[in-house]
């Protein structure tokens, strides 16, 4: 995903789809195209208890991007500075090669313009120091945006802090 990663905390996700609607409405994406998609499983009964889980699936901005390699007009480019893969709309001829090449069919079709569109992680927002629309709109902070190395640090620290807190309070009780 270029130099970035979006992670989902399924415990916090309430399957409200605000992420998808912000993506569509703020990037002027046609109704039928969902560039960043929240995939929800459940609620369903598991051993008599209702459970659910979810994961957010935007474009992965692959290192070796199938879409980019398939594009005959070099409309799909990768940003030098952070590896984001994006489409230059004026160069797209609407051949759909990218859509077919991508194993997840992440590039989608804009019927109004007759061109392919894809998630660019809101790179204009990133350049302003903001998070992508999907992440920033999430009402429960279920989505996090960052660099993979930060994520690892943050997760380990949060987890270990929790453990240490528990140990500390358990000790003080004794």
């Amino acid at each position: 995903m270029g130099d970035y990663i979006i992670t989902t905390n399924p415990k916090r996700c309430i399957a409200c789809h605000a992420c998808e609607i912000a993506c569509k409405s703020e990037n002027n994406i046609p109704l039928e195209a969902t560039l960043g998609k929240i995939v929800v499983l459940g609620p369903k009964m598991v051993n008599g208890k209702p459970k659910m889980s979810s994961v957010f699936v935007p474009c992965f901005h692959c290192e070796k991007a199938w879409c980019l390699e398939a594009c005959p007009t070099e409309a799909i480019r990768r940003r030098e500075k952070d590896g984001l893969v994006y489409i230059i709309e004026s160069l797209c001829v609407g051949c759909k090669a990218c859509i077919m090449a991508c194993p997840w069919h992440i590039p989608q079709w804009n019927a109004e313009t007759g061109k392919a569109i894809k998630c660019d992680l809101c790179m204009d927002r990133i350049d302003q120091g903001l998070e992508p629309a999907c992440v920033s709109v999430c009402p429960t902070d279920a989505l996090s945006f960052g660099r993979p190395e930060e994520l690892s640090d943050k997760t380990r620290e949060t987890y270990a802090h929790g453990l240490l807190e528990r140990n500390l309070s358990a000790t003080s009780v004794r």
Binding site: A18, E26, S136, P139, T140
Partner: peptide, 23 residues
């Protein structure tokens, strides 16, 4: 764009799907 009022911490800066669909 429409977001939670940043001066109100419990908004987490977000809005619900209805809020964002106000546009």
């Amino acid at each position: 764009s429409i977001r939670g009022n940043p001066h109100v911490p419990a908004m987490n800066g977000g809005v619900c799907p209805k809020g964002v669909a106000a546009m």
